[in-house]
Simulated assay, not measured.
Amino acid sequence: MLPGAPPDDEELGARIRALRLERGMSLRALATALGISPSALSQMERGKMRPSVTRLFQIVSILQVPLAAAFGEDVPAPAAAEPVEVKPDEVVLARSGDVPALSLGHGVEYRRLTPVPIPGVEIFESVYPPGSSSSQDAEYLRHSGHEMGSVLSGTLTLDIGFERYELGPGDSIRFPSTTPHRIRNTGDVPAVAVWVNLP
């Protein structure tokens, strides 16, 4: 794979499998926690099925790793006592194309906007093609932390709990990630947003 190229389905599946194995979790145990069949999870791990945004967030949440781990970033074990050190006086540069995007179900793409992972915060650009959704079968996602997003172009529909919000260019939102939520692009042009996850 070329540097900065999006990981293909097999590579993403292999990363999910490696993270599962590093955490000492069986295929059946993770599938049960996700509420899917072991066969469906096996297809994801073999690159035969691409996870939705919701499913990927569920996987990393259960495995207690940041979303950056799906990009192939090294992550400490959940029990690690020492946090990753960020050197405030160090300059880190990533050129366009250095950081790969993740292409998920429905064609949704996530690209990390920081040159290296930053402990405690994840900042991504997300692109939702027309008709795409963060989930399969209209399911909602719940996980720990808070989310903040700002739409740069297009329109996104967010269902948060029992409320629906339409966000256009320049609109932003913040909500607790523990509230069931899903994101959709019901428009006819791609929607681009900057998304911040605070675990």
Rank of each mutant, 00 (worst) to 15 (best):
A81I: 07
L67C: 08
G72Y: 07
A77L: 15
L63F: 13
P76N: 03
E109W: 09
S61T: 11
A69G: 02
I62N: 10
V99L: 10
E73W: 09
E90K: 12
V65K: 00
E109F: 13
F71K: 02
A68Y: 03
L63E: 06
R112A: 03
P88N: 08
S96L: 13
P78T: 12
L93E: 11
A94L: 06
E85P: 10
Q64P: 00
Y110T: 03
R112V: 04
G107A: 07
V86K: 02
A69K: 00
D74L: 06
I62R: 14
S103N: 13
G97K: 01
S103Q: 15
E85V: 14
R112N: 12
A77T: 15
V65L: 08
F71H: 03
P83M: 13
F57L: 12
I62M: 09
A81P: 04
I62Y: 06
V75M: 02
A80F: 14
P100I: 10
A79I: 15
F71C: 03
E73Q: 14
A77E: 15
F57G: 04
L67G: 00
V60R: 01
F71P: 01
G97H: 03
P76R: 08
S96K: 14
K87T: 11
A79D: 15
P100T: 11
Q58S: 08
Q58K: 15
P100W: 10
A69S: 05
A79L: 15
V86T: 09
G72V: 08
P78S: 03
A79W: 13
R111V: 05
H106R: 00
L93D: 02
V92D: 05
E85R: 11
S103G: 14
A80L: 07
A79H: 15
V86P: 07
S96P: 09
L104Y: 04
V60I: 04
E82C: 12
V65S: 03
A101C: 13
F71S: 10
R111W: 14
A80M: 12
E90L: 08
P66G: 09
H106G: 01
V108D: 05
H106A: 08
L102K: 01
A80H: 12
H106N: 03
G105W: 00
V92P: 07
P78F: 06
A68W: 02
H106M: 07
K87E: 05
V91S: 02
H106P: 00
L93F: 12
V60M: 04
I59T: 04
S61R: 11
G107D: 12
P66M: 05
P83E: 06
E73T: 07
R112T: 02
F71G: 05
V108S: 01
Q64N: 03
P76C: 10
R95K: 14
S96H: 15
D98G: 09
D98R: 10
L67E: 03
R111N: 11
A80R: 15
A77N: 14
P76S: 09
F57P: 04
A79P: 10
V65F: 08
I59M: 10
A94S: 10
E82Y: 10
A79V: 15
